[in-house]
Each structure stands twice: as C-alpha cells, then as structure tokens.
Write a protein that binds this DNA or RNA. Structure first.
Length: 587
DNA sequence: CAGTGAGCGAGCTTCCGCTTGACTT
C-alpha cells in the first residue's frame, strides 16, 4: 500500500471517522497534540444494510446487494457530512477488519456524493488502520494512510449476501413445513442449534456401562496412601462388567500382593502453572455465566462499565472495549499492570492477534476497589472484578509447585500403581485467581516428603470400586459459547444474540444454566439438516471463511469473480429441485 | 332473503454483524 501524508493541506483541518463514539474524546486530544484541527465523529457501527422486509439481493444482476440506511443512521451520516469543509483531510479509521472495511466503503461513498453535490474543493479522503487508541497507535496510523481495500469490501458483501440468501430463503420453507410464522434458520443459529441437538441425541443413545477400578493401599512411613492401578499411559485401568474373568484375575493377583513389599520409584520435579490470558468477549461471557449471568446480561453490564462512571466530577471509562476476540494488551495496558503490580512478567498467549481491531478486555485505571464498590452495583462490581483479576493475573508470575510421582514396578501385566501429588510453594498469579487451582486434582492429594530414589513399600490392602460411565453433559451457556468460538460459528458481537434467538423461537430452553433443546427444536433441526446440511451444518462457516479469505487476498477483478462463484454455488444448493418449492416465488 | 363458501389478493414472518441509545417492564 502506498503511504500518504494526512496533513497535505496547510490549515490541518481534519475529519476523523471511527465506529465507536466513546473513543472520540481520547482521539480528539491526541490529534490536537499533533496540531490538527480535528473533529472526531462516529458512525455507531454499520450505517447501511440490506432491507429487512425483502431479500435485497438482485440475483439476476450478479447477486448485487441493495444497501439502504439503517434506522437513525441517515441522521448520523448527515451530521458527519455537515462537518465537511473545503481543504479538509478526511481520515476513515473504522475498525481494521472485514466489517470495518465495509463501513469505511459506505461512508466514503456518502462523502464523495456530498462533495460533488456541494462542489467542495481540495478534499482528501484516506483510510487509516488504528490498532490502539494511544499516541503511538494514532501516529502510526496517520503515517501509513492508504485507500479502502476493495477486495475486503467485496468479501464483506459476500459474507452478508450469503447469510441473507441462506436465512431468507430457508426460513420461509420452515413457515410452510411447520405452519407457523416467525420460525427462522441461518448459518449461525442453526449450526448452534445442531450442536445442542447433537448433544441431546448423544445423551439419549448413551448406554452407560458398569466398570471396575482398583485402588491399592500402600504403607509409606506408617501412612496409608491410596494408589491408582493404571496402565503405562497413566490412564486408570478399567475392567468392564462383561469381563468377569479379567476381574477375577486382577482381584486374585492383588490379594496375593497383600503384605508383600513392592519396589517403587519416586520422582520429584519443579513445575509451574502459567497464568490465564486476559479476558475477551467469549471468555468474559463464559466466566460470568459461571456466576449465573446470561450472555446478554453480561454484555449490557460490560457496556455500562465501558461507558464508565463519574467519580468526583471526573469521568472514568472503567474497561476497554468489550467486544473483542483478542487477548493482546496495548502498551498502555502493560504500563497500567506495571503501575499496579510493580514487577510484571510478559507471557505469550497467542500468535494470531497482530492486526486485531481491539485489544483484550481489561481495566483502564488503577482505582481503589473499595472506592469503586460504592459507585457500582453488585452485578457491575462482580463483572469488574472478573476483568480486574484476569488482567492482573495475566501479568503476574507463574505459580510454582513441587510435583511428585510415585510409581511401582510392573505390578500385573503391564499395570502399575501411581500416586501423583503437588504442593504449591509460590502462589504467583493464583493470588488473583485462587479457584483456578481446582482444575488440578493433584493438589487435593497429600504431598509426601520423599527424596528421588527407589523404595520398598508394603501393600496393605486393595479396594475394587464399581462405577458407572457418566452421561455426556449438556451444554451450559459457558460451554456453548466456548464451542461456538472453537468452531468459529458467530462473532463476539453475536454470541449473546444467537442464544437469545434460539430461546425466542422456542428451539431451546435454559434451566439452571443448562441448555436443553425442545422437542420442537429437535424437529426443526432434523428437518433443516435433512434438507440443507451443506449450508447449515457446523463446518459450513469454516468453508465460507476460507472462501472469504480467498476473495480478500485477490485483486478486485478476481475478487468479483470469486464473489459470483461463491454465491452461485450457494444459490444452486438452495434451488436444487427437491428443496426449491418455495424459492420460485420470489425472484 | 340470509347464510355459506370459493376465489383472489394483500400483507406478514426471516439472516448475521457493526454500534448505541430510546424504548418499555
């Protein structure tokens, strides 16, 4: 990309356009310190979209989308346009991602039309990529101004039109088939529903088997220690109900070993636990769900924290932007962590967050928690604490522990006795996340003081435990969001919406934080998958993303061709004869 | 003459992803 200079005009007049209005004050201060006479304005997200009440895609004209102003956006755009003057640099700094590029495209078009209409002179429009709202972040953005990336815009159109075709062509098939209005299907909601329905079917068809495991009690320095009988891979050895001979054999062998000395090897190691990364939208929703917050509740609380509060006439935005899929922390954030913790450690959490739109969700000021408690309600404070703890933990030191494993020699047919335990001797980040340790069962075991080496211990007794395989567990709000994120279904701004839609349609129910599909939901899901598996199953999103990637990476002409190919392919699936009975009506 | 019903046409639901208010409960 060719780099341009923003201040080519003498008077340094600048109009700086972003998506979120809460950023504008900070940006404005920074731009003024660069000697720009800048006004910073926000689009509040997308300004244009396909119409709600019809398809809005001209299929015969190469799937050309018809974009209209979203409600209230005409006014917002007019307010932006009214600020344009002669000799102005207009910098479009919407988020550096696919959706942001499309927003930039739409606003740029409005600006160009306005300039022509009003016959304005000497106006220069450019696109900036701002990854963080700091002095350096803005400076870097202004030093590398470019043009709108048309291929990326085309890829956003492809995403939008795919979703529209799938949603608006398949939903009516449901109205007809189930004789019920308001039913819906879509790339994201139906795939999510299928995850939930699949789990239910797995549970229904699950036949838990009974099995036996073995605990062996060993005398170590007059202490009775319970060992597990395990295979070489350190998996608990199980004998299933129908293997009676095997059970008898193991029992016999173990009985013979009572009162006998057996050779054990003790191994001690110094190990550590790495902190968790700071929160992003998905993990915030997951952690809050464990405290009983629905995903949409969490988001509305986070919105309030983001907008902030007044403390003694001074305004404090309490957290960074809460819709993000990055765990990157800006320099500013690292400085903040340093100022609170004194000594910090930078951990490496993820590679893919080089050019993300927003950083991790973190606190923004070093405010006294007790003071803050007076300004926030209980719910707000709980969410704030989650964000606070995960942020500081991420810059704290690893927790350190003594790890010990005691392992017997080959006891019976390649089976061994294992005893693993651990003892924390340096808390590190666990001071912020004390519950995290519950994920490690070894800390619930007594830690025995033994040096490395070979020992003889006497076997005292053994127990045979009869157990049943446990049923797979249904999704919770927390785990369904995790699964959606892992499979790439949906985006941070939509996890909560998707779950709400499934609830509204009566496809799912949530009881005590457990998600159940309704009978109706199962029927709808089965019906949809039997007809439109290619478009509505879980892996379609990954397919779509790879196609969108191709579009993004191509030049404009190829991108247009790929756009047409992709949508034709999708449309042909929708049209295929046995499914298309309703489709011929429109278009 | 009153009630019934065939036939026709108009109007309606729906997707995913960006952003906040402006609403109601």
């Amino acid at each position: 990309m060719k780099s341009k200079k923003a201040n080519s005009n003498n008077n340094n007049l600048m109009l700086f356009i972003v998506e979120s209005p809460t950023k504008s004050k900070t940006i404005s201060n920074i731009l003024n310190s660069f000697n720009y006479k800048a006004s910073v304005v926000a689009t509040l997200g997308h300004i244009k979209d396909l119409p709600v009440n019809n398809l809005g895609v001209n299929i015969k004209d190469g799937f050309k989308p018809i974009f209209l102003f979203l409600p209230y956006k005409k006014k917002i755009v007019n307010n932006i346009l009214n600020k344009i003057e002669d000799k102005m640099s207009i910098v479009i700094a919407t988020d550096p991602d696919r959706e942001g590029e499309a927003i930039a495209f739409h606003i740029a078009n409005e600006i160009k039309n306005y300039i022509k209409l009003k016959n304005l002179k000497d106006i220069h429009i450019s696109r900036a990529f701002i990854n963080e709202i700091t002095y350096n972040g803005i400076k870097k953005g202004l030093e590398n101004l470019g043009d709108i990336n048309v291929s990326m815009v085309i890829s956003q159109f492809a995403r939008r039109v795919s979703d529209r075709l799938i949603g608006y062509k398949i939903s009516p098939v449901l109205w007809q088939a189930f004789k019920l209005k308001g039913l819906s299907a879509g790339r994201v909601q139906t795939a999510t529903l299928k995850l939930i329905v699949d789990k239910e079917k797995e549970i229904l068809s699950f036949k838990p088997r009974t099995f036996y495991t073995f605990k062996v009690v060993v005398d170590i320095n007059n202490k009775k220690v319970e060992f597990n009988l395990m295979n070489k891979e350190k998996e608990i050895f199980k004998v299933f109900e129908n293997e009676k001979e095997k059970l008898d054999f193991i029992e016999l062998k173990l009985r013979e070993l009572i009162s006998k000395e057996v050779v054990f090897e003790v191994l001690n190691e110094d190990r550590y636990i790495k902190p968790l990364p700071p929160l992003k939208t998905s993990t915030l929703q997951q952690e809050a769900a464990k405290l009983g917050f629905s995903a949409s509740k969490t988001m509305s609380i986070a919105q309030r924290l983001f907008e902030g509060i007044k403390i003694k006439d001074k305004h404090f935005g309490l957290i960074t932007y809460h819709r993000t899929d990055s765990v990157r922390v800006s320099k500013e954030g690292i400085e903040l962590a340093k100022s609170i913790l004194g000594d910090i450690k930078i951990h490496r959490f993820s590679d893919k967050s080089m050019f993300d739109a927003h950083e991790a969700i973190r606190i923004t000021y070093n405010l006294d928690l007790n003071l803050l408690r007076n300004y926030l309600n209980q719910e707000e404070f709980k969410i704030y604490l989650l964000i606070y703890n995960r942020f500081l933990a991420a810059f704290d030191y690893e927790a350190k522990y003594y790890y010990q494993v005691i392992k017997s020699n080959n006891l019976i047919d390649d089976l061994y006795l294992f005893y693993e335990s651990g003892k924390i001797y340096f808390n590190g980040f666990l001071r912020f996340l004390p519950d995290y340790i519950n994920n490690f069962p070894i800390f619930n075991k007594d830690y025995i003081d033994l040096k490395d080496g070979v020992y003889n211990f006497k076997i005292i007794d053994f127990k045979v435990l009869k157990q049943k395989e446990s049923y797979p567990s249904r999704y919770s709000i927390s785990s369904i969001i995790k699964k959606m994120e892992e499979t790439g279904i949906g985006r941070p701004s939509t996890y909560a919406n998707t779950i709400n839609t499934l609830l509204k349609r009566n496809y799912i129910q949530i009881k005590k934080n457990t998600i159940y599909p309704t009978e109706f939901g199962i029927k709808v899901c089965d019906f949809l998958i039997s007809k439109y598996k290619e478009l509505l199953d879980i892996d379609f999103t990954a397919f779509l993303e790879s196609k969108l990637d191709d579009i993004e990476k191509s030049n404009k002409d190829i991108a247009n061709k790929l756009y047409l190919n992709l949508l034709t392919e999708i449309y042909n699936i929708l049209l295929s004869e046995k499914k298309g009975f309703l489709l011929k009506k429109n278009n």
